[in-house]
Amino acid sequence: DVEEQIRRLEEVLKKNQPVTWNGTTYTDPNEIKKVIEELRK
């Protein structure tokens, strides 16, 4: 469920934690926001 994935990513973003997505770890909040934007398409 895309909405659920977006919610999880936004939670991690608020906590300033790194996100691992498709084998890539993102630590930059701007990169995480880009992943969220991609999911919304």
Score class of each variant (00 low, 15 high):
Asp1Asn: 11
Asp1Lys: 09
Asp1Thr: 12
Asp1Leu: 13
Asp1Arg: 10
Asp1Ser: 14
Asp1Ala: 09
Asp1Val: 10
Val2Asn: 06
Val2Gln: 06
Val2Asp: 03
Val2Met: 09
Val2Pro: 06
Glu3Pro: 06
Glu3Gly: 08
Glu3Val: 11
Glu4Cys: 03
Glu4His: 06
Glu4Pro: 01
Glu4Val: 05
Glu4Tyr: 06
Glu4Phe: 05
Glu4Arg: 05
Glu4Ala: 08
Gln5Arg: 04
Gln5Trp: 15
Gln5Leu: 14
Ile6Ala: 03
Ile6Trp: 03
Ile6Tyr: 02
Ile6Arg: 01
Ile6Gly: 01
Arg7Lys: 13
Arg7Phe: 06
Arg7Tyr: 06
Arg7Met: 07
Arg7Glu: 06
Arg7Asn: 08
Arg7Ser: 09
Arg8Ala: 15
Arg8Pro: 02
Arg8Gly: 09
Arg8Trp: 15
Arg8Ile: 15
Leu9Tyr: 02
Leu9Asp: 00
Leu9Thr: 01
Leu9Arg: 00
Leu9Ile: 10
Glu10Met: 10
Glu10Cys: 07
Glu10Val: 05
Glu10Phe: 09
Glu11Gly: 06
Glu11Ala: 08
Glu11Asn: 09
Glu11Leu: 09
Glu11His: 07
Glu11Asp: 12
Glu11Gln: 12
Glu11Lys: 05
Val12Gln: 15
Val12Tyr: 15
Val12Thr: 07
Val12Ile: 14
Val12Asn: 14
Val12Trp: 13
Leu13Gln: 02
Leu13Pro: 00
Leu13Met: 11
Leu13Trp: 06
Leu13Ile: 14
Leu13His: 03
Leu13Val: 09
Lys14His: 12
Lys14Asn: 13
Lys14Thr: 12
Lys14Gly: 10
Lys14Met: 12
Lys14Glu: 13
Lys15Val: 05
Lys15Gly: 10
Lys15Asp: 10
Lys15Arg: 12
Lys15Trp: 13
Lys15Ile: 09
Asn16Gly: 15
Asn16Ile: 04
Gln17Asp: 08
Gln17Glu: 15
Gln17Met: 15
Gln17Ser: 09
Gln17His: 09
Gln17Ala: 10
Pro18Val: 13
Pro18Arg: 05
Pro18Gln: 11
Pro18Glu: 10
Pro18Leu: 08
Pro18Ala: 11
Val19Thr: 06
Val19Gln: 01
Val19Pro: 03
Val19Asp: 02
Val19Trp: 14
Val19Ile: 13
Val19Lys: 01
Val19Cys: 05
Val19Met: 09
Val19Gly: 06
Val19Tyr: 13
Val19Ala: 07
Thr20Val: 14
Thr20Arg: 06
Thr20Met: 13
Thr20Asn: 13
Thr20Ala: 08
Thr20Ile: 15
Thr20Asp: 10
Thr20Gly: 02
Thr20His: 14
Thr20Lys: 07
Thr20Cys: 05
Trp21Met: 06
Trp21His: 08
Trp21Arg: 00
Trp21Thr: 02
Trp21Phe: 14
Asn22Arg: 07
Asn22Phe: 11
Asn22Trp: 06
Asn22Gly: 12
Asn22Ile: 02
Asn22Gln: 08
Asn22Val: 03
Asn22Tyr: 09
Gly23Gln: 04
Gly23His: 04
Gly23Asn: 06
Gly23Arg: 00
Gly23Thr: 03
Gly23Pro: 01
Thr24Leu: 11
Thr24Trp: 06
Thr24Asp: 11
Thr24Arg: 13
Thr24Tyr: 10
Thr25Trp: 12
Thr25His: 10
Thr25Cys: 05
Thr25Ser: 08
Thr25Pro: 03
Thr25Asn: 05
Thr25Val: 13
Thr25Phe: 14
Tyr26Lys: 01
Tyr26Thr: 02
Tyr26Glu: 01
Tyr26Gly: 01
Tyr26Leu: 14
Tyr26Gln: 01
Thr27Gly: 06
Thr27Ala: 08
Thr27Gln: 08
Thr27Pro: 02
Thr27Arg: 08
Thr27Leu: 06
Thr27Met: 05
Thr27Ser: 09
Asp28Lys: 02
Asp28Ser: 04
Asp28Cys: 05
Asp28Trp: 03
Asp28His: 07
Asp28Met: 04
Pro29Thr: 08
Pro29Glu: 05
Asn30Asp: 15
Asn30Gly: 11
Asn30Arg: 12
Asn30Trp: 10
Asn30Thr: 14
Asn30His: 10
Glu31Pro: 01
Glu31Ala: 07
Glu31Gln: 09
Glu31Phe: 05
Glu31Leu: 10
Glu31His: 07
Ile32Thr: 01
Ile32Val: 09
Ile32Leu: 11
Ile32Met: 03
Ile32Ser: 01
Ile32Asn: 00
Ile32His: 00
Ile32Arg: 00
Ile32Trp: 02
Lys33Asp: 03
Lys33Gln: 12
Lys33Phe: 06
Lys33Pro: 01
Lys33His: 09
Lys33Ile: 14
Lys33Trp: 14
Lys33Glu: 07
Lys33Ala: 13
Lys33Val: 09
Lys34Arg: 12
Lys34Met: 10
Lys34Asn: 08
Lys34His: 09
Lys34Pro: 00
Val35Asn: 01
Val35Ile: 15
Val35Thr: 03
Val35Lys: 04
Val35Glu: 03
Val35Tyr: 04
Ile36Pro: 00
Ile36Tyr: 02
Ile36Ser: 00
Ile36Lys: 01
Ile36Thr: 01
Ile36Asp: 00
Ile36Gln: 00
Glu37Asp: 12
Glu37Arg: 06
Glu37Trp: 05
Glu38Leu: 11
Glu38Arg: 08
Glu38Ser: 10
Glu38Cys: 12
Glu38Lys: 05
Glu38Ala: 14
Glu38Thr: 10
Glu38Met: 07
Glu38His: 10
Glu38Gln: 12
Leu39Lys: 00
Leu39Gln: 01
Leu39Pro: 00
Arg40Phe: 05
Arg40Cys: 02
Arg40Pro: 01
Arg40Ala: 04
Arg40Glu: 04
Arg40Ser: 05
Arg40Ile: 08
Lys41Trp: 11
Lys41Met: 13
Lys41Ser: 12
